[in-house]
Amino acid sequence: MTPQPHILVIVPCYNEQGAIANVVHELTAVRDREGYALDILVVNDCSTDNSLTIIRSLPCSYLNLPVNLGIGGAMHSGYRYAYQNGYDIAVQMDGDGQHPANELPAVLRPIFQQEADVSIGSRFISREGFQSSFSRRLGIQYFRWLNQLLIGETVHDSTSGFRAFNRRTIEIVNRYYPDEYPEPESIVQFGLQGLRIREVPVRMRNREEGVSSINTSRALYYMLKVSLGIVFMYFRLNNKRHR
């Protein structure tokens, strides 16, 4: 690793015209303050609003997906970009402003110090800032239990999309990254690939604009889909390991 690692912050964006500019500006401010070798890549997942026009005017690179792939497919293209362009660290940060760029140093620290391959910003460790609704926390509790059962690792905030990966993890997610709701599923993937996962406490904000991708009617589908994804990911990778 070079003394100054090259960082790519990937910001998935689907109809975030109200928040995306702020997210990018906050990131550039943090970059200038901390002196990071940091590039920003916004992945426009076929937004139907003005997002693309706004992204074009921002000081960042962008990928413009011609077909809507969902968060997993959007992130996967960002990771492929990070892999192809030889970045040392890739960071995922939501485009809705829930993840304050000021917390970036905290999320990056375990990677810098080579203590972890995957660093996840968790809002449930210090219990500060936005804590999400009761039913959502219940679901997150369930995924925590499922992760403990399958990979023996306690991840408090497995739905958190505020994460940093080192090069080793980038190589893995370049090859495969889950599709639709990737966050809880990828933790099982990382655990079974033997990656070191570290959670760091961060404060999150309530979203500035737009609505959550998961509303109540989709919650049940989400739980079922993610559970299936996790279980089959477990079998698939376990088979590979024992072969």
Binding site: L63, N64, L65, G73
Partner: peptide
């Protein structure tokens, strides 16, 4: 297959834009 192709198209568009082959991706 569609997912892989979509990602490939987005990455190629980015590449072309960086080489100034195209200005407006769409």
């Amino acid at each position: 297959q569609i997912k892989v192709l979509t990602q490939e198209v987005a990455l190629l568009r980015n590449e072309l834009k960086n080489r100034h082959v195209i200005n407006e991706p769409e």
